[in-house]
Structure formats: C-alpha cells, structure tokens
C-alpha cells in the first residue's frame, strides 16, 4: 500500500484518472475506427448527449447542495408526455409554459420534502421516480402519445431545427450551461449552494436559509428536466411513457464523472459538461466498435464505479486504504 506522491504516476492517475482514461479511450477508438473522429459523428454525439446533458446541469446543483435527484428520468417522461398531449389540445404556444409549470410543481414538491421537511433525498427522489411514473401512466392512460399533424407544427424546431448550422438541442444545452455556470459560480445564490452542501450546519450558523437553498436546487433541476422533455418531445413528436426510464443513472454518472462529490460542496457546471461528453463519446465509441447496445448498460456502470473509486482515491491520496 504505497503512498501516492505528487510526482508518482499513481498519484497522477489518481488525480486525473478520468481525463487519462478519456484520452486513452479516444485514441483507441480513433485508431479502431476513423469514423469516430469525423465531424458528423462528433456533432451527432453532442446532439444525442444534449438531453442527458441538460438534465445533468440541473442535477449538478442538487448534488453540490448535498443531495441526490433520482427522479429526473421519470420526470422527463412526464414532461414529454404532457407537452405532446397539450400540443394538440392547447397549441404549442400554451402547451410549453403549461408543461414547464407542471414540471416545476413536481420539483417544488420534492424541494419541499427534502429542503423544508429535511427528508432523506435518496428516499424521496427514489419514491418520486416511481410515483411520477405512475402519474405519467395515469395521465396518458398507458397509451403512447403522438402529435396529430407532425408536418404542420413549428414545435419540431427544439429537437430537429438548426440555427446557423448548429442543431438547436446543442444550442439550448450550451446556452443553459453558460447561464447556469454564471448562476453557480458568480452569484450569491451559487455561493450558498456550495455552503449548504459543504457544511449545512455551518451554513445555518452563518444565516444561510438552508431549506430555501435546497428547495431552489430542486426547482433548477425540474426546470432542466422540463427543457430536456421539450427537446425529447420536439425531436420525436411522439413518445412512449417510458422515454426517460433509466436516464437518472446516466445523468448521475455524468455528474460524478465530472467530479462533483456525492458528499456535496464541490463540482462545477463546466466539469459536468465534460462528464456528459466523456460518457457520450465512450458510449458512441463502443457502439462503433461493434459492442451491442445492451452491453452499454454494463459498460456505463463499470465507468461510474471506476469514477467513484478514483474520486475517493484522489481524496485520500492512495488507491486503497484499510480505513474508510
């Protein structure tokens, strides 16, 4: 059990393990299949990562604030189904704000339970994962939801449009990333999120309204989920009830890969974006190498566990320790 010094190769891997692994993967993929580094492929990966990416931005706030959000996948299904249904009933102009309001209401409910009632966020959001799934099925009557007139609506712009040659989902992901970076790193609110996640008791003793801050992180998360639901609905103009199923784990994986600590108090929006891209490119690379789609579930989890291990190793400065 050698101590990892700053100069040792082990120490370097412990501190930058995720980037090292990413570079090795990229080089390997590029050698195995040159198509991997083609512009169209890269653009495609980013576009398909946008939905997970947008959700990961919101979950970053929740995690830095010291909590978890496992409900985002199921909540995203809800947003998608609701906006598709209201599209035909109210028209897109009203459907979108209505869907955002309903999704934010769910976020407010979770934020109330975790922030004000101080219930464990793992239990609350795991429960909400299931409860919102049931809500979605009740709302849709279990049927898939489709827009009637798929050709004649401008609603498809969020998922399929291009502005200045850049796909709109990428633009929305980028815009949201910039806004949320500013919010987290530059505003008093962002500082409070770090304080509450870093040491909630000390934050309270400094006059920070801890419950309100936690509540707001879940509102931000819900806003991001609604945005992801909008992109998803607009891209397909029809959807199953289970479209977001399992995405909460990929979202969490991206946030952890980016280096946010599950204990709260550390992480940045930029790092999460990196985490999203790493996850997207690795999955894409494996697919290009001919790995079966279903095997990706396994690989994703191997990557997450590796990331968590390296995160802990970096903190204690060694790869393995007999205590804690």
């Amino acid at each position: 059990m050698a101590e990892l010094t700053k100069k040792g190769i082990g120490g370097f891997i412990a501190r930058h393990g995720i980037l090292v692994a990413f570079v090795l993967f990229m080089v390997g993929f590029a050698l195995a299949n040159p198509r991997f580094i083609a512009i169209e492929n890269i653009s495609g990966v980013i576009r398909s990562s946008a939905i997970i990416g947008v959700m990961a931005l919101g979950v970053t706030f929740v995690v830095i604030g010291g909590n978890l959000d496992l409900s985002v996948g199921s909540m995203m299904s809800f947003s998608t189904i609701v906006v598709l249904d209201l599209h035909d009933k109210l028209g897109p102009t009203l459907a979108i704000p209505a869907m955002f309001a309903m999704t934010l209401a769910l976020g407010a409910f979770i934020g109330f339970l975790v922030g004000y009632l101080k219930l464990n966020s793992l239990i609350v959001t795991l429960g909400m994962l299931s409860a919102i799934h049931g809500l979605t099925l009740t709302y849709s009557g279990g049927k898939n939801m489709d827009i009637d007139d798929k050709q004649g609506t401008w609603f498809s712009i969020f998922g399929q449009g291009n502005v200045a040659g850049i796909p709109v989902p990428i633009l929305m992901f980028a815009l949201l990333a910039v806004v949320l970076t500013l919010l987290l790193s530059k505003t008093p609110f962002g500082r409070k999120v770090y304080a509450v996640g870093g040491n909630g008791t000390a934050a309270t003793f400094s006059g920070i309204p801890r419950a309100r801050v936690v509540f707001m992180t879940y509102m931000i998360s819900a806003f991001c989920v609604a945005t992801a639901g909008l992109i998803q609905a607009s891209r397909s103009l029809g959807s199953q009830n289970t479209v977001g199923q399992g995405l909460e784990l990929e979202v969490l994986a991206a946030v952890i890969l980016g280096g946010a600590s599950l204990l709260g108090g550390s992480g940045t929006v930029f790092k999460t974006v990196i985490g999203v891209l790493i996850l997207g490119f690795i999955q894409n690379g494996l697919l290009l190498m001919g790995l079966a789609f279903y095997a990706q579930y396994v690989v994703t989890w191997v990557i997450i566990i590796l990331a968590v291990w390296l995160d802990i190793a970096a903190k204690r400065g060694r790869l393995w320790s007999p205590i804690a």
Binding site: A195, A202, I208, G265
Partner: peptide, 28 residues
C-alpha cells in the same frame, strides 16, 4: 462543525453571511 465550511476558501467563509450584499449587478 458549526463555524466554518472547511472545504471553502478563507475569503468565501468570511463573507458568507453578507454575500447577498457584496454584489455588482447580479454577480458577487
């Protein structure tokens, strides 16, 4: 446990209770 956020820097700890008043526009 109650006085400090150990993983935060010295300045941010010191200005924490008044961070709302330390702004220029919307930003700290």
């Amino acid at each position: 446990g109650q006085g400090l956020i150990l993983g935060m820097n010295c300045r941010d700890n010191m200005t924490l209770p008044q961070v709302d008043d330390m702004t220029a526009g919307p930003f700290v």
